[in-house]
């Protein structure tokens, strides 16, 4: 790969922007939600504080949330592109962003318990690479905090306690259960990513990749689009509200995808992403220069 320095600098800018600048679709979602909550209610007050926080993070050039999360990079590269070099440039960018306070020292050795000064370690950051018949590199970054990661759930159907069978009504029940179980603990109002099918590992991968979709899009699969709509409406009547302190807005959005499965397994996997929905992306030239921002 040529231009290692240019790549490091572009990827650093991607991380910086992801950490400090909430994407426009999510900010608009928060504004819309704010209008649906009663004046002088706790819910309204919290949503106003969140919007104020979005503005301050941008103005202060500082992290939206102190839990700068796990970093998940999704790369689409031209056929034959050197992904090892790309990973190494990304690691350098992560270390620099940590040094400059855009990322917290957030990577812990699971055996010794010691903190890592650079956020570069085995499994951190996470990379997905895919080759595409294009002459440019598409990179997307999710920064997902621990509070919301902890409230994710995976169900194996049939799930007797929910009366959930192996059909879309069963999926609906799992998602309702996941929303009720999560309460506000994943920093509501959040966005749900759901995967129907897959295995225990790919189910979570697919549910998280739903977060790459824009907040106001709909599933291209009509029946899933209908299910997304219905569940989002139902989430409001649970009256969980921002931070689980009551109100209409438990969720800003809900995205459902599906994968094939083996006959014996039927998983429904739910990932939760907090309101501080740090997701950015860009199209870059093969030399690492910016062509355009995504989102």
């Amino acid at each position: 790969m040529k231009n290692h320095v240019q790549w490091e600098s572009s990827l650093f800018e991607l991380i910086r922007r992801t950490s400090v600048d909430l994407p426009c679709d999510i900010e608009q979602g928060l504004r819309r939600a704010c209008k649906t909550e009663k004046k002088s209610s706790r819910a309204r007050w919290i949503l106003e504080a969140l919007l104020e926080n979005v503005q301050k993070a941008r103005d202060n050039d500082a992290p939206l949330c102190q839990d700068t999360g796990s970093l998940i990079f999704y790369f689409q590269v031209p056929v034959g592109f050197d992904t090892n070099a790309l990973a190494s440039a990304t690691r350098l960018a992560v270390a620099r962003a940590t040094r400059l306070g855009y990322l917290r020292q957030n990577t812990i050795d699971s055996v010794s318990g010691s903190a890592c000064a650079t956020n570069v370690a085995y499994g951190a950051p996470t990379f997905y690479f895919e080759q595409c018949a294009r002459g440019t590199v598409d990179v997307r970054l999710l920064m997902k905090g621990g509070g919301c990661e902890n409230v994710g759930k995976q169900y194996s159907l049939p799930a007797e306690s929910l009366g959930a069978g192996r059909d879309l009504e069963g999926v609906r029940r799992c998602v309702l259960d996941a929303v009720v179980s999560a309460q506000g603990n994943g920093c509501a109002p959040g966005i749900l990513g759901v995967c129907i099918g897959g295995d225990r590992a790919t189910g979570y991968e697919c549910s998280k990749s739903q977060f790459l979709r824009k907040l106001d899009d709909k599933s291209p699969v009509k029946i899933l689009a209908r299910l997304e709509d219905r569940l989002l409406k139902e989430s409001k009547v649970l009256e969980i509200g921002p931070m689980g302190l009551g109100g209409n807005t438990a969720l800003l959005g809900l995205k459902i995808g599906s994968m094939s499965r083996v006959p014996a397994s039927f998983f429904v996997t739910v990932s939760y992403m907090c309101w501080a929905f740090r997701r950015r992306g860009a199209v870059l030239t093969v030399r690492g220069g910016f062509k355009k921002w995504l989102y």
């Binding site: 009504e169 609906r172 929303v179 029946i223 139902e234 009256e239 302190l245």
Partner: peptide, 26 residues
């Protein structure tokens, strides 16, 4: 506990939604 109050109400409502006579059918 305010959070417990919200949770209990949402659990009741969640059960009601699951019992509804309007299952999701393609």
């Amino acid at each position: 506990n305010l959070l417990r109050r919200v949770k209990s109400a949402s659990l009741r409502m969640g059960r009601k939604l699951m019992k509804s006579s309007d299952p999701f059918i393609p």
